[in-house]
């Protein structure tokens, strides 16, 4: 296990893409300390910003543990393919970007774009997360393409933007435009959702257990389902099932808890 402890607090953004089991593998602590890191426009060595300790524990995969706040450190675990990262505080933006395997756990909150463009692996965030979880890069239509993200707190807008595959589970509330432009995959929201869930979706599945103020006019009610399956697990409903986004000729499915959303009862007349 490698333990990184920030030597001081950071104000300007720090590029943490080298903090990844793939980069650390087979390196001595002094080699790790020499890895280049950008702090704003200054190129520094990792050892300049962090105390690095190596604790050999009998574990099969490499684990990196960050003790302290990493809220300003971006792209931790970017492109990692194996091993494990545990962040005991907050994590900055682009956590696990383009991740290809392994696992990341954040005890605190994570910034926006966590798990963006990820293909494999798991990300677990105990606190809240920002916007664009599992999203695509600007201009691209290739969002999250596999793996799983679990957030125990709340998340912001555009969760799963341009998502293609995989699972995003949020136990708290989410902002607007959940699953915008999503093509496939599953988004589960344990709490409440703001408006415009499923906007412009082409396929995939969004499940909202809590309340949602309204459904887009471009969705049409299709059925009431007593339960829905998420990643093999059954979640008990009943749920309204809406299809859409019809403005895009989409075939996505929106499952909305019937009990929590009595204001949607008028929809039932179309069934």
């Amino acid at each position: 296990m490698i333990i990184l402890t920030p030597k001081r607090s950071f104000t300007v953004p720090v590029g943490g893409e080298c903090i990844s089991p793939d980069t650390f593998a087979a390196k001595s602590t002094s080699e790790m300390a020499n890895l280049p890191v950008w702090e704003g426009n200054k190129k520094r060595a990792l050892g300049h910003l962090f105390r690095i300790e190596l604790k050999t524990a009998p574990s099969e995969s490499l684990t990196i543990r960050i003790r302290g706040d990493a809220g300003r450190i971006r792209r931790i675990g970017a492109k990692m393919s194996s091993g494990r990262i545990v962040i005991e505080g907050n994590a900055g933006m682009h956590l696990g970007e383009e991740m290809n395997g392994g696992a990341i756990t954040v005890v605190g909150n994570a910034g926006s774009w966590a798990g963006s463009r990820m293909k494999k692996g798991t990300i677990e965030i105990k606190g809240d997360a920002g916007h664009y979880i599992g999203a695509a890069y600007r201009g691209s239509n290739k969002g999250m393409n596999g793996g799983a993200i679990t957030i125990y707190g709340n998340a912001g807008n555009e969760v799963g933007c341009f998502m293609r595959k995989g699972l995003i589970k949020i136990h708290g509330d989410v902002g607007q435009f959940t699953g915008i432009h999503m093509k496939n995959g599953t988004i589960y929201i344990g709490g409440d959702s703001e408006v415009r869930a499923g906007a412009q979706m082409l396929g995939g599945k969004i499940v909202v257990l809590g309340r949602i103020p309204s459904i887009l006019p471009t969705f049409t009610i299709d059925d009431i389902k007593s339960r829905v399956k998420i990643d093999g697990e059954k979640v008990e409903g009943p749920f309204y099932r809406f299809l859409g986004d019809l403005a895009e000729n989409g075939n996505g499915k929106l499952f909305i808890s019937q009990k929590q959303n009595t204001h949607l009862t008028p929809c039932e007349r179309f069934l």
Partner: peptide, 8 residues
Amino acid sequence: LLRPEDHV
């Protein structure tokens, strides 16, 4: 302008 994903 259209292609940030090409530049990145």
